[in-house]
């Protein structure tokens, strides 16, 4: 296992390197400079002041020099300072936003698996019944619903029409004065809609995947053997089939990370949640290069970590992988 882990970690090094290279290239190939943006706002800026700005941000150096310097700083977890007027450290900005996005996504991920796995088993064990077909229809609808539209509809129904749930932000006005329990409840109420949307967004894909791996496993010889031994259907499904059908789903867990993080731009913008997605969107609009590059690198690294965890889980569950 230790050997497997070391090999797996070493493989991540070229990937990390590639992530920084692509991030840097993508951002610097695009025309226009952040300085242009600041200058365009203020016609009084002289050419001299402009040069000073470029020098300050090290934009006057050749690209490869900029890249090497940037990666050097990254290796010390220094993401530089934001171009925004507040000029704060990118790390600090991301650090205060990450908990919102991470907790939202982790809750959504847990709910997704908690709901999709039973749905998948249910559909697979009742293959071609009206129930299975009904689930398939639901799955196809789920694939086709645009997340942001669903977010809008829920906002309209539960926020505007029924008035049951708050539709934006993380806390109510005046939540500072609340007790801890009331404060947490208030936050939970704010999170219901975004979490529902985030959960729903991958539910269809996951449950369909679960159904197909389950069907595949049920068709295997050892399941027939288990049935032939006279085991109850319950034991066959939950002890023999489910364990093997869950394996590929673990891998999917790692793959779903980039989608979740990418999706957070949409529902954080709609529900005005102060998370990484919203920060990224604002950074992109303001051409805040260090911030945008920082979030891209961190987002990709989170995916790497997700894949690593999935692989470790897989290796723990399946001895064939380790050897």
């Amino acid at each position: 296992m230790a050997q497997y882990l070391i090999k797996r970690l070493l493989l991540m090094i070229p990937l990390l390197f590639g992530i920084t290279l692509i991030t840097f290239t993508v951002i610097h190939l695009a025309p226009g400079e952040p300085v242009e943006m600041q200058v365009a706002m203020n016609p009084k800026v002289t050419a001299e002041a402009r040069e000073r700005l470029r020098k300050f941000y090290e934009l006057d150096k050749p690209l490869h020099v900029q890249y090497v310097k940037w990666v050097g700083r990254l290796s010390r977890l220094d993401f530089g300072r934001s171009f925004a007027p507040d000029g704060r450290k990118v790390v600090d900005k991301i650090r205060e936003r990450i908990p919102v996005t991470l907790s939202l996504n982790i809750i959504a991920l847990v709910l997704q698996f908690g709901i999709a796995v039973p749905i998948g088993i249910f559909a697979a064990t009742r293959r071609d019944t009206p129930l299975d077909k009904g689930i398939t229809v639901f799955v196809f609808l789920g694939f086709a619903v645009p997340t942001f539209w669903l977010a809008l509809l829920l906002m309209y129904v539960f926020g505007v029409k029924l008035g049951w749930l708050p539709i934006s932000g993380l806390h109510s006005m005046g939540s500072e004065g609340m007790g801890t329990v009331a404060w947490l409840l208030d936050m939970a109420r704010h999170l219901i809609l975004p979490v529902s949307v985030a959960t729903f967004s991958s539910l269809a894909g996951l449950s369909r995947y679960m159904r197909s791996t389950m069907l595949e496993v049920i068709g295997q010889d050892y399941i027939t053997t288990a049935r032939a031994k006279g085991l109850s259907e319950r034991t066959v499904i939950y002890r023999h089939a489910l364990r093997n059908a869950l394996l590929p789903v673990i891998t999917l867990l790692g793959f779903s990370v980039p989608g979740l993080i990418g999706g957070s731009v949409i529902f954080e913008t709609i529900y005005a949640l102060p998370g990484m997605g919203q920060l990224f969107y604002m950074g992109v609009m303001a051409r805040d290069y260090p911030l945008v590059m920082g979030i891209l690198v961190i987002g990709a690294c989170l995916t790497l970590v997700g894949n690593l965890l999935a692989d470790i889980g897989y290796a723990l569950a399946d001895p064939r992988i380790r050897h």
Binding site: L15, G262, L296, T303
Partner: peptide, 9 residues
């Protein structure tokens, strides 16, 4: 590497 990036970002 490309698959690591949140595509939408």
């Amino acid at each position: 590497i490309m698959l690591c990036f949140p595509t939408f970002f």
